[in-house]
């Protein structure tokens, strides 16, 4: 043991290396160190994705499906008016057809597309996401996020579906 320290070298993976005194932590516990590095990177990714206005400008987006009346009316009004029950409805779901959206979102009318909104642009009022139950003679099954009262925000963009 003393002889090893005097020489200042050791053999790792068949290669002669300079220990430089006490060995680095990675050399003593290589698997633990690798695990901690991966964990640190994961924490960094989670932090970036969940921080509003982060370096990558990742924003939580939600969609508002509507028909041609809403397509014209919502931008003109400047807000999404609460429906008859006092809520404006949004969803994180994306559907390629109006028929599918009507079915999964249990809508009374077939939408022609959806507005994409940045959730951060709304001040408050969202309720937790929940699964859509059968309604309007449609099976539901999609996810809805209700906004209590009128939802004031400008849409990021419009997507037309077939």
């Amino acid at each position: 043991m003393l002889k090893k320290r005097a020489l200042g070298t050791r053999v790792m993976n068949g290669v002669l290396v300079d220990s430089g005194g006490s060995l680095p932590y990675e050399d003593v516990h290589p698997s633990n160190a690798r695990f901690l590095r991966v964990l640190a990177k994961l924490f960094k990714i989670v932090e970036v994705l969940t921080t509003s206005g982060n370096a990558f400008d990742v924003q939580p987006m939600i969609n508002h499906y509507t028909d041609s009346d809403g397509y014209k009316g919502i931008p003109a009004a400047g807000y999404v008016a609460a429906g008859t029950d006092g809520y404006a409805y949004f969803t994180p779901d994306i559907y390629g057809s109006g028929k599918k959206a009507k079915s999964r979102l249990a809508l009374a009318v077939k939408p022609i597309g959806f507005f994409i909104f940045n959730m951060d642009a709304f001040t408050s009022g969202f309720e937790p996401p929940r699964k859509i139950t059968p309604y309007n003679n449609e099976p539901g099954g999609g996810i809805e996020i209700r906004h209590r009262g009128n939802a004031y925000s400008t849409a990021y963009r419009w997507i037309t579906v077939k």
Binding site: H64, Y65, T66, D67, D69, G73, A81, G83, P111
Partner: peptide
């Protein structure tokens, strides 16, 4: 009148 658009509404 209020038109129910299912996901929102519209005053007319």
């Amino acid at each position: 009148v209020f038109e129910d658009l299912s996901t929102s509404g519209q005053w007319l």
